[in-house]
Design a protein around this nucleic acid. Structure first.
Lengths: 177, 177
DNA sequence: CCTAACCATTTAACATGTTAATCATCTACC
DNA sequence: GGTAGATGATTAACATGTTAAATGGTTAGG
C-alpha cells in the first residue's frame, strides 16, 4: 500500500520503477512469448474456417493425421498430432460419436486401440481443405515463401537443440525412481 | 469398411493411401505445428522450475508483467500478458487470494480495476528469477545468441505481416451452395 | 435528468492442457 | 503357469483457452 502513484505510466517507460525491478529480460520479448504470439497470429486466420465446420484446431489436427494413414494406434496418433493422451482420448470419443472416425482394439494386443478416419471424416476434410489451403497460401504469399521456409528451418533447429538439453528437475532431491 | 489392412504402415510411407488423400500439405510441417512444437520444446525447460514454486506459466507471465509497472488496468494487463479476459479474471482471483497481487477499483471509472504486484509477489519473482534466467541463458547458449535474435525478428515480422491480413469470415460466402 | 447504447469486467459453459491415478492387459521371471 | 511389474488407454481433477452472456458502470441524445 501507499506505493507512489503516477496516473498514467502503464504504457510508458519503466524508468521510475527501475529501482524495485528484479533484473529480468523484458518478458514481452521472451522466446516463449514470441512463439505464442506468432502462433496466435497464424491461428487467428484459420479458426473462423474451422469453426464454420464445427471443428476445433485439435480435432482438425487429428483428422489430418488420420487422413495420411490407413490406421494408427492411439499412442502414435498422440505423437503425430502433438496431443497428450488425455486430450486425445476425449477428442476421439467425440469424433467417434460424430462418426468422423472409427476405432477398434488391436488383435495382437488388447490394450491397444487402432483408429482410422471414416468416409464422413474424409468428406469433411475435403470440405475444409480448400479454404484452409487458400489461407495458407495467403500467409505464404504475404510473408514470403523463402522466408517462411527459413523460419520453419530455424524452428526445427531450435526444437532439435532443446531436445538434447537436460531439463533441470529442481526437485531432484527425491532419489531417482 | 473393409479398407485394405496392412499390418505396419503407421510409421512408414503413405504411398498406398495416396489415392484417397486430399491434396494437402503434410500437416506435421505446417507453420502452426512448427510453432507449437518449438514453443513446447522451450516451455518444457521452464515448467519444472515454475511448478516448483506453485506457478503456472500464465501466472508467471502476469507477475512479470506486473513487476514492470507500478499499476496497470486489467484490460491493459490482458494485452501485455497475452491472455483473454476470462482467463485473466480467474487467475487474478487466485493470485489475489494468495496475496501475490493487490487490486482496487479506479477512482475515475468504477468499472475499471487497477492491479499491482504485492511485496510477496516481488519476493516470489526474486525467488524464481535466478533459475529462470539460468534456463534462458542455457537455451541462448545452445541455440546461439545471434540465431536466437534472428528467430525472434522473423517471428515479429510474421506477426506483423499477419496483423494486416484480413480474416476470412467464411460466413460471408454462405450463399454459394 | 433519463434512458439507450456502450464499455470494462466477470461469470458461464464447454474444450483442451497437464499431471496423477486407475484399469486392463501384457511380459518377464520364477 | 502364476504373479509382480511394465505398458496402453482412460478417467479424474484442476487450470486455461475460447466464445457468449450477464453484471455493473458510464456516456450521449432526447
Amino acid at each position: 500500500m501507499a506505493r507512489k502513484q503516477s496516473a498514467k505510466n502503464s504504457g510508458s517507460g519503466p524508468a521510475d520503477v527501475a529501482a524495485r525491478r528484479v533484473p529480468m529480460r523484458d518478458f514481452s520479448r521472451s522466446l516463449p512469448m514470441s512463439l505464442l504470439r506468432a502462433r496466435e497470429a497464424v491461428m487467428r486466420q484459420f479458426r473462423p474456417s474451422l469453426r464454420h465446420h464445427e471443428l476445433t484446431e485439435q480435432q482438425w489436427r487429428i483428422l489430418r493425421a488420420l487422413a495420411a494413414v490407413e490406421t494408427i494406434e492411439v499412442t502414435e496418433l498422440a505423437r503425430t498430432a502433438f496431443l497428450l493422451g488425455p486430450s486425445l482420448s476425449r477428442i476421439l470419443r467425440d469424433l467417434e460419436a460424430r462418426q468422423l472416425i472409427e476405432r477398434r482394439v488391436a488383435e495382437a494386443d488388447q490394450r491397444r486401440a487402432v483408429v482410422s478416419i471414416s468416409a464422413g471424416g474424409l468428406k469433411l476434410i475435403a470440405a475444409v481443405a480448400p479454404s484452409s489451403e487458400a489461407i495458407y497460401s495467403a500467409i505464404t504469399k504475404r510473408f514470403g515463401a523463402r522466408r517462411l521456409a527459413e523460419l520453419q528451418e530455424m524452428l526445427a533447429a531450435l526444437e532439435h537443440s532443446l531436445s538434447a538439453m537436460e531439463v533441470a528437475e529442481e526437485g531432484s532431491l527425491e532419489a531417482d525412481r
